[in-house]
Design a protein around this nucleic acid. Sequence first.
DNA 1: AATGAATGAGTGTTCATTCAT
DNA 2: TATGAATGAACACTCATTCAT
Lengths: 201, 201, 201, 201
Amino acid sequence: MPKSPERCAELRGEMRARILRESLRYFARNGFAGTRIADLARGIGIAQGTIYRYFDSKEDLFAALRELAANGDDVRELKLLARLPLTAKAKIGRLSASILGRLADDELFAASVVLNTQLMLEEEPDADGRPAPYRSELYAHTARIVEQGQREGSVVAGDPLKLADYYWGVAYLYALKRLFTAGYAMIDAADLDRTLLKGGR
Amino acid sequence: MPKSPERCAELRGEMRARILRESLRYFARNGFAGTRIADLARGIGIAQGTIYRYFDSKEDLFAALRELAANGDDVRELKLLARLPLTAKAKIGRLSASILGRLADDELFAASVVLNTQLMLEEEPDADGRPAPYRSELYAHTARIVEQGQREGSVVAGDPLKLADYYWGVAYLYALKRLFTAGYAMIDAADLDRTLLKGGR
Amino acid sequence: MPKSPERCAELRGEMRARILRESLRYFARNGFAGTRIADLARGIGIAQGTIYRYFDSKEDLFAALRELAANGDDVRELKLLARLPLTAKAKIGRLSASILGRLADDELFAASVVLNTQLMLEEEPDADGRPAPYRSELYAHTARIVEQGQREGSVVAGDPLKLADYYWGVAYLYALKRLFTAGYAMIDAADLDRTLLKGGR
Amino acid sequence: MPKSPERCAELRGEMRARILRESLRYFARNGFAGTRIADLARGIGIAQGTIYRYFDSKEDLFAALRELAANGDDVRELKLLARLPLTAKAKIGRLSASILGRLADDELFAASVVLNTQLMLEEEPDADGRPAPYRSELYAHTARIVEQGQREGSVVAGDPLKLADYYWGVAYLYALKRLFTAGYAMIDAADLDRTLLKGGR
DNA sequence: AATGAATGAGTGTTCATTCAT
DNA sequence: TATGAATGAACACTCATTCAT
């Protein structure tokens, strides 16, 4: 009884998205090994078998999550920000505010940051010895802002990639807190800025 | 003929310590669920059954690790530092250098920081709503240094406990990097200081 | 589409009963320690995991068996018999015939008698020093028949509970034989009667 | 430092006997599978390894126990009794009193009866279909007394071996009670006699 | 010869995955 | 298509046996 092929595919997409969305929470909190399919299914409110109609295996589901977490939108947005005609200090301020705002509002964003960072941690360094995180585009764009700031004198000295990594590390830290702890004192944008900026005054 | 009771107890203690020491790495890297007893045993170089002569269960071993990670020595050391007749800035500088130095030299210290932080993340907030980390003595002593610094004008404004949590959060971050990634750019003490210090010039 | 909730619950009950039924044999023959889950599963013709969908553990399964073995039906039946307007001798004759008949026909009855008796043997005597078996209702009803017989002069003198225990002990004995030995000479009802009755003539 | 070869062998024999003696209790109570070497060693008050200096394996120890339980002395004694110039009724009375007396006094005798009976239960019937118990010499001698009693008119009719089996079955029953239950009402010799004797009067 | 810590094969239990409905 | 019971490989844990002391 096909309710129109399109509608069908649409429903399929919705369920898939729902599974991904809900799974992200679990995997980010408990890790791959600590997440049980049974818990996932109960949490989503579907049967275990249903998950296997959308994903071949737990690993496959996790791989899909990996892609979801490596959010292209975020990268594009950051790319735009990096190119805006603003001082590095202003760019960093905007970015910090945006990150902390989204962490507060959007649990999925937090989960995505957590998962993405953990994946980078676990990746092997590539052939030329550079550790994996530094390959990330997100880091590259951030590093460009850092370089701009160093030229402008607002950002501390040091390897731009190292500083970008530090900056996003702190973002990961508060994404973790968001996922795990109920009442916690979130840092404010100025705290996050301080990873990069020379102390004002 | 038993090997003399003292020698025997001593050997027992050594094996227990060895199991704990080696396990810390695994549990910190892979989490509780992700750590298999078989891997542990292979990693330590003993039979699976041997682990069960020293610990009742995987959970029991993990609980012992928890105690080990909640290292009293570190707290005592920090307590002493907090009472030294130094400026807060100097205390923070010493602490940062000590932390980063130990992270670089001592994988076990890194594992201990990681485990300890994760345990705090997972703890439920206590009855009065304060999240668990803030109960930690380590945080309390750090917060006292922060307060001193705020009075002295060297440390940024803000809830001292929040700032202490931020500071140790960054320590956790680099403990993670130490455990997981082979080639990574460690931040230097000045970067860690910046979580707390006004970046005066 | 679930198979209809009722049918589902029914199937669940059937499988549970089947596991219990088949397990009884194994535990009665081999004891708790001597019964392997793997053997049980093979014997029942299901996977090991399936057993754990119905019982939390081997101990839990055994506990369920304990309840099954403490068969309320037998007690009720005996209660009725005890109240019938018959001589004690007639009652004992009927009971013996019934027991021996069921032992011959129904392996499950034999297993149930065996398990039940062994459980009573292992129970600690209660606070007032009376051994556990004597608390059993089955024994109490049998003792009442014994008392009647003693009044009527057909049953030997002695503590009625001790004699009831003796009677059921012999039943246990032949339940054991039924379970363990292929060709064995079953006693006949007259032999069983003789545990209680004064020799005829 | 040999303390004389004989003394040495003697000590060896004593320890072996002690292990056997103490083990009998455990195996009779808990069965083969239910008896742990660790428990045995603790119960005897020696190290686990020591058991393996006297027996090759748990199975080997159990086999030695089997021989011990198949006590030749008991058989010889019964053989003598069977040949005594007494009525069958008197012989049975003596035997019953002897059995019940030893059960009360000697836990090892009880354990031996239990083990011996259980071994017979588990043995496969031999080629000609006769169940194993009937091969036992103990049964054969008892059956001879039964036959004598049947000729004399004091013993009930029926297959003498079946009746002998019944008689020893009841002995097993009270050996079990002796091993397992603290306070229990032991049957008296007259009760045991009644398995065989026509009710006097 | 006796010890008891170490071993690893074997057993109980979990959980990702399959499949009949 | 969705379900959840059934499956069995993988994992935690036990215990008979070995072996250095």
